[in-house]
């Protein structure tokens, strides 16, 4: 089933052993738990399954989760790239601190982040009051959910793009400028295509993370069914009501959609890089 594709000599001849470990590890940690999820969901009839997942409240939460996650990942792709650009291309005082701050969302317990964001963006909070004056509600709306998801997804884009930008050879930009290209053209035609696969990687990681995010969102969303209830919360709610089958059904659908989306993004990325990577 798993064979090495080419039989060229390798210095470290441990394919069999390392592949074996990989399979066992992946099975124990990822595949078996997921398989159980599907087994659990399969315990009910198709009609029951269909009525669970087409429930208005469930559909609304799917729509909310995917749209806010997508928007958050999209915004992160833009601003994360900007931050990566600053960190990779310029020297400035306090750069190390900025670099460390980027990782904070990784380290901070998500509940802490959620409470902090809610406090800030609540109608009477430090930032929320300014939005309130403009008639925009942030906390307890999809907008608030999106902000929490942007927060937790930021490091993924920065850390994917930054090393690629650092490795970027100056000579391509120089070649483009001697050929008459202006700064915008150099960025759009030379730099962006080179870093785009890395941006896509960061985007899909941030998107995947946002889909499963629970801790930081539950505080800022307000959890109103049909309005601000995300899928992970709905699953927890079902579990608390001992509706294990319902929870498994919703989770299974969530998993399949996520898998398809991530697969498509990766396929796109593979298509781009295949075109001009060294053969």
């Amino acid at each position: 089933m798993f064979k090495k594709k080419k039989r060229h000599h390798q210095v470290l001849p441990a394919f069999g052993l390392s592949m074996g470990y990989t399979l066992v590890y992946l099975s124990l940690i990822v595949l078996i738990p997921i398989a159980f999820l599907f087994i659990k969901a399969a315990a009910i009839s198709w009609d029951d399954f269909w009525s669970i997942i087409t429930d208005r409240r469930v559909l609304a939460s799917f729509q909310l989760t995917f749209s806010t996650s997508f928007m958050a990942a999209f915004i992160n792709a833009i601003f994360g790239t900007l931050i990566a650009w600053i960190l990779a291309k310029y020297q400035f005082t306090g750069k190390k601190i900025v670099d460390a701050i980027v990782d904070l969302p990784f380290a901070l317990p998500t509940a802490v982040a959620g409470i902090a964001l809610t406090t800030l963006y609540a109608p009477n909070g430090w930032i929320g009051r300014f939005f309130e004056a403009l008639g925009i509600k942030v906390a307890f709306t999809p907008l608030g959910i999106m902000i929490a998801l942007i927060f937790i997804g930021l490091p993924f884009v920065v850390r994917s793009v930054q090393p690629v930008l650092q490795e970027l050879d100056q000579q391509y930009e120089e070649a483009a400028s001697t050929l008459g290209a202006n700064s915008l053209q150099i960025f759009m035609k030379i730099i962006l295509p080179t870093i785009f696969p890395a941006i896509l990687t960061g985007f899909s990681l941030a998107f995947a993370r946002a889909l499963g995010e629970y801790g930081s969102v539950v505080f800022i969303s307000g959890n109103m069914p049909l309005k601000t209830e995300i899928v992970p919360l709905l699953i927890v709610t079902k579990l608390e009501q001992f509706d294990y089958v319902g929870a498994a059904a919703v989770a299974a659908v969530m998993l399949v959609i996520s898998f398809i989306l991530l697969f498509l993004i990766n396929f796109w990325q593979w298509r781009i890089s295949k075109k001009y990577e060294t053969v």
């Binding site: 391509y172 120089e174 070649a175 035609k189 295509p193 080179t194 075109k275 001009y276």
Partner: peptide
């Protein structure tokens, strides 16, 4: 350039 600097994605 010594190392050509051809744009790889074109």
């Amino acid at each position: 350039f010594q190392h050509y600097a051809l744009f790889k994605h074109m």
